[in-house]
């Protein structure tokens, strides 16, 4: 019997969550710096020297200010002013990543997916109506009535609520949605087909 290896303990950064040695390549190295100085000075000796050369307190204060403004009211002023001294272009590059992701999440769209259960039974899953200010319980009732089938609000894999409608109604549903809720444009409705997102319009 082979010996049971012991798990390695990896020092993960308390700010960005990466192994601390990768903070320098992480989404916001400046934000990690105060934590690293406290918890992983051996990994970034330059960070300590830098801080010593300048006024330690001042530097810490500055960094803290960045941390707060970044996390709180999103004041880009502090961070951009500070980043100028380190490496402006690099910062810009990483910033875009989280920005792009956030945008995508907030995008108002309805996603419809047909899930086949057994051979002939299927369920049409409608996600995202709540993003248009539609009450899901209401919508579920209306869908059930219109298509004379069972419809219920259920928690999806992400804990996000979605509407499951029994039966394949994928193709009639677009018209019904846009007529019932004029706030939902056809262009915001998508189907999942073979794992790909396809616009309904």
């Amino acid at each position: 019997m082979a010996e049971k290896p012991q798990p390695v303990r990896v020092l993960y950064c308390g700010v960005c969550g990466l192994p601390a040695e990768y903070c320098e390549f992480g989404p916001d190295f400046d934000k990690c710096k105060p934590w690293l100085r406290q918890n992983a000075p051996h990994l970034y000796p330059d960070l300590l020297n830098d801080a010593k050369e300048k006024d330690v307190d001042k530097a810490a204060e500055q960094l803290q200010a960045v941390g707060i403004s970044g996390a709180g009211d999103g004041g880009g002023e502090g961070s951009s002013a500070n980043s100028g001294s380190t490496s402006g272009s690099k910062q810009e590059e990483v910033k875009r990543l989280p920005g792009g992701k956030i945008k995508k999440k907030e995008k108002q769209e309805v996603v419809i997916e047909k899930i086949v259960r057994n051979k002939r039974k299927c369920v049409t899953v409608v996600k995202g109506l709540e993003l248009f200010g539609i009450k899901l319980s209401d919508a579920s009732k209306k869908l059930g009535k219109k298509f004379a089938t069972g419809a219920s609000v259920v928690k999806g894999p992400t804990d996000k609520e979605q509407i499951d409608v029994q039966g394949d109604i994928a193709y009639d549903i677009v018209e019904f949605l846009t007529e019932t809720w004029p706030d939902v444009p056809e262009s915001a409705i998508f189907f999942i087909e073979d794992g790909r997102k396809v616009a309904a319009a």
């Binding site: 992701k101 894999p157 992400t158």
Partner: peptide, 12 residues
């Protein structure tokens, strides 16, 4: 790259 909970279609 863009993986999230929404990409999970079933858990069994």
């Amino acid at each position: 790259k863009k993986f999230s909970f929404e990409d999970i279609s079933a858990q069994n």
